[in-house]
Design a protein around this nucleic acid. Sequence first.
DNA 1: AGGGCGACCTGAGGGC
DNA 2: TGCCCTCAGGTCGCCC
Length: 270
Amino acid sequence: MPELPEVEVCRQGISPHLCGNTVTDVIIRHKQLRWPVSDEINKIKGDNLLSVERRSKYLLLRFKQGTLVIHLGMSGTIRVLDGFPEIKKHDHFDLMFSNNKCLRFNDPRRFGAILWFDQHVDKQGLLAKLGPEPLSEGFSMGYLFDKAKNKKVAVKTFIMNSHIVVGVGNIYANEALFLAGILPLTPVNKITKARFDKLTQIIKEVLAAAIKQGGTTLKDFTQTDGKPGYFAQKLNVYGRAGKKCVVCETILEEIRQSNRSSVFCPNCQG
DNA sequence: AGGGCGACCTGAGGGC
DNA sequence: TGCCCTCAGGTCGCCC
C-alpha cells in the first residue's frame, strides 16, 4: 500500500482536478472490497465535491450530503482520467464528474474500502479510535513516552499501531528505526525520553521528505498523473536484507514481527 | 486489557 | 511449462 506519504501525494494529485465539480455518475463494478460497497453512494449523483481531505491513510471526499471514504488497502490505486477510458482488470469503481474527469479505483487484492458516511465521519467507527497524525503537534516525544509507559511491546509494533499514531506503515517504520538507531525488537518501556525525542523527529522527517518527493514507488503506486514517485532509491533498510548497511557496511538482518518483515543494521541500531 | 496472529485477496517470483 | 510455496505497502477481529 500506499503508506501515508503515498496517500497524501494522491490526495494532492486528485484534489485540483475534481474539487468544485459535480458527480454525474457512480459506477460500482465490484462490491466485494474489504467491506461491501453500498448502493447508497448513488445518492451523490448531482452533488458537488467540496474538498478532498485525508485522515490517516483514509481519503475523505466531502460532499454536502456526507463523506465518501476511500482506503487503498495494500494494492489499491486511484487515478484521475479524462473521459471514460477502457476498463482494465481490477478497476472496481468509478466516479464521473461534470468536467469529464473520471476518478477510477483499481485494487487487485481488494483489501481497500469505499464507504459512505452521512455525517460525523470523524467520530464514527473506523476513524473514531485513531491516534494523532504523525505530522501534527499532537505527535510528540511527551505523547509517545506517556503511551509507552508500562508497555513492553516491541517499538516497531508500537509505532505501527494506529491507536498510538497513524500512518506509519512497514516501510517507514523500518526506515525510521534505522535512522533513529533503535532495534525494532526493543521493548518500549526501555526507551529513554531522549531516544523517543529522536524517534519522533525522525518519523516526522521521513514522512515529510517522502511526501515532498512524491511518495515511494514500489509495485503498484504511481502518482495520479502517471509519473512515478521516487523515494524508493533513498531507502536504507527496507527490502535490503542481506545487503550491506549504507553507513557501516555490516550485513543487514531480517526478522519477522507481527507477520511483517523487519530489516535492521545490528551495528548501527542498538 | 494487552498482545499475538489468522483472515481477507490476487499476483509475482523462486525452487523443483 | 507448470505446480506449489512464500511473500507483498493494511488492519480488523478473535483468541489467549
